[in-house]
Structure formats: C-alpha cells, structure tokens
Amino acid sequence: MKLFIVLALVAAAYAAPQQNPQDVQILRYDVNNAGLDSYSFAWELSDGSKHEEQGQLKNQGTENEAIAVQGQYAWVGPDGVTYVVTYTADENGFQPQIQQGPGGAVPSAVVASLLG
C-alpha cells in the first residue's frame, strides 16, 4: 500500500504544470485601433502562449457589412509541443486550421477541445 501511495505522489508531481500561472509574464502586448474600420492586436506570454489578430470592416454602410478577421494563436501543450491555430472569420464563419510543430498530428483530444 505504501508503494502505491508513493507512486501516486510521484505521478501527481510529474503531471503538475511546469510553471505556476502567477509566474507567467507578459512579454509583448500591442494594440492598434486604426479607426472604426480596422484593428490589430498581438500578445505573447512567457509560457509560450501568443495570439495575433487583424480585423477589417468590409462593405461598410451596406446591408452586407461585416468584419473580416484573420489571425493565429499558439500554446505549448503538456506534451511540450507548440500547437498553432491559424484562422479566418468572416461572413463564412470561423475557419480554423490547426497545426503542430514538426513531426506529427494534433492529438484528437486537443482538436475536440478546440472545436467542440
């Protein structure tokens, strides 16, 4: 029984996040609101997370007025792999393209958590 408890504690310590959320630092934060018809922003954190996005108003003043957005965000998964989602969002909806660093497919659990 003691061996089981020791193994459980070792497993819990191994599975623990490598960095406490309060230790994450903002490395970059840029915002550009260029009037009412466009914007952009970018941020990056010390844990490897980042997000960049640009948006622009299309068909201004018409019945088909909409914002067209493009961007990408990334994070380092618990497996140490950097995952990247590149996307567009416009009158056709949100259209993500999920990528991973060199060497493999994105695990189905990651895809399911993003899309569903």
Rank of each mutant, 00 (worst) to 15 (best):
17 P>Y: 08
95 Q>P: 08
58 K>N: 05
50 K>D: 11
51 H>I: 08
11 A>D: 03
1 M>K: 08
41 F>H: 11
28 R>G: 05
5 I>S: 01
17 P>I: 04
19 Q>T: 11
3 L>Y: 13
89 A>T: 03
14 Y>K: 09
79 D>M: 01
109 A>W: 07
36 L>V: 12
116 G>T: 14
30 D>P: 00
114 L>V: 13
6 V>P: 06
71 G>P: 10
70 Q>P: 03
111 V>K: 12
29 Y>G: 10
44 E>I: 02
115 L>S: 07
91 E>F: 03
110 V>Q: 07
105 A>E: 12
81 V>W: 07
58 K>H: 02
113 S>I: 04
48 G>E: 13
24 V>Y: 06
77 G>P: 02
52 E>D: 12
24 V>N: 07
20 N>C: 04
108 S>F: 13
81 V>E: 08
91 E>C: 02
107 P>R: 10
66 A>N: 02
73 Y>P: 11
93 G>L: 08
16 A>P: 00
75 W>H: 02
63 E>G: 04
77 G>C: 09
63 E>W: 12
102 P>L: 15
8 A>V: 00
18 Q>T: 12
92 N>K: 05
82 T>G: 12
42 A>T: 13
53 E>Y: 03
71 G>T: 10
83 Y>A: 07
64 N>S: 09
62 T>V: 05
40 S>H: 00
108 S>N: 08
17 P>Q: 06
46 S>P: 06
23 D>E: 03
45 L>Y: 15
26 I>R: 09
53 E>R: 05
12 A>C: 00
108 S>P: 07
64 N>G: 00
108 S>M: 14
104 G>K: 13
88 T>V: 03
79 D>I: 05
56 Q>T: 05
76 V>R: 14
68 A>F: 01
32 N>R: 08
92 N>A: 04
116 G>H: 11
7 L>F: 07
67 I>Y: 06
22 Q>W: 11
6 V>I: 02
22 Q>C: 06
112 A>I: 04
15 A>H: 00
20 N>K: 01
87 Y>I: 04
97 Q>S: 15
65 E>V: 01
37 D>N: 03
77 G>V: 10
46 S>A: 04
89 A>E: 06
64 N>K: 03
97 Q>A: 15
38 S>Y: 01
21 P>M: 08
67 I>K: 03
99 Q>D: 13
69 V>R: 08
90 D>H: 05
72 Q>L: 13
103 G>C: 15
20 N>S: 08
92 N>E: 01
41 F>W: 09
58 K>Y: 04
44 E>C: 10
28 R>P: 11
93 G>W: 01
32 N>Y: 09
86 T>Q: 15
44 E>D: 12
31 V>W: 14
52 E>N: 12
114 L>S: 10
49 S>V: 14
58 K>L: 03
68 A>Y: 02
107 P>G: 06
89 A>F: 06
16 A>G: 02
61 G>A: 00
83 Y>L: 06
102 P>D: 15
